[in-house]
C-alpha cells in the first residue's frame, strides 16, 4: 500500500492458531487474562477474564507504553526493552515484544507469580514468534496479488459509512 509499510492481514487459520497459543499460555501461567496487541495499538486477540476491561483502550495504551519505553531504550543506546513489568496491589502486568512486531500482555494476580509468567511467556512467545514470522513472509509474497476482495469496494459503499 505505502512504501515501507505493510499491513497486517490475518486469516481464520492464523487467527485460530494464535488464539490457541495464548489459551495454552493462559492455562499454563495461571494468569487472569492475555492480550495480543499490534505495536500500533490494535487488538489482535484476547483470552481469559476480559469481560469488564476496555480492551480497545488497553491496546492503545499498551502500544503507547511500549513506544515510549522503546524511545527511552534508543536514548540510552539499547535497541528495545523486550520485557516490561508493572506491579500493582492486586494485579500485575507483564508486557513482552514478539518478533519486534506484536505485544503480548499478560495480566496476573497472586494465583500466579512473575517467575512462572516469565517462564511460560518465553516458551509460548517463541511459538507466537514463529506464527508471526510466517505471516510476514506470506504478506510479502502476496503483496502484489491482483485479485482482491477490497477492489470491489464502491464509492457508494464508502459514502454509506458516513450517512
Amino acid at each position: 500500500m505505502f512504501e515501507a509499510q505493510s499491513s497486517l492481514v490475518l486469516h481464520d487459520e492464523e487467527f485460530s492458531s494464535i488464539a490457541s497459543v495464548i489459551e495454552k499460555l493462559l492455562q499454563e501461567s495461571n494468569s487472569k487474562a492475555i492480550f495480543l496487541v499490534d505495536k500500533d495499538g490494535q487488538l489482535i486477540s484476547s483470552v481469559g477474564e476480559t469481560g469488564d476491561l476496555d480492551t480497545t483502550s488497553l491496546a492503545s495504551l499498551t502500544a503507547g507504553n511500549i513506544a515510549a519505553t522503546g524511545g527511552l531504550a534508543k536514548l540510552i543506546g539499547e535497541k528495545e526493552f523486550s520485557i516490561l513489568f508493572h506491579e500493582g496491589e492486586k494485579d500485575n502486568l507483564h508486557l513482552s515484544l514478539i518478533a519486534s512486531r506484536v505485544i503480548l500482555v499478560v495480566i496476573f494476580d497472586n494465583r500466579s507469580s512473575l517467575g512462572l509468567v516469565r517462564l511460560r511467556v518465553k516458551k509460548w512467545g517463541e511459538e507466537l514468534e514463529r506464527i508471526f514470522c510466517t505471516l510476514e513472509k506470506k504478506a510479502r509474497q502476496n503483496s502484489d496479488s491482483p485479485k482482491s476482495f477490497f477492489a470491489e469496494i464502491t464509492d457508494e459503499d464508502i459514502d454509506n459509512l458516513f450517512k
Binding site: Q5, S6, S7, H11, E14, F15, G41, Q42, I44
Partner: peptide, 15 residues
Amino acid sequence: MSFINYASREINLKI
C-alpha cells in the same frame, strides 16, 4: 499500517 482481520471481519485504520 492497516490491520485487516479476516477472522473477525474487521478493518482497522489509524488516523
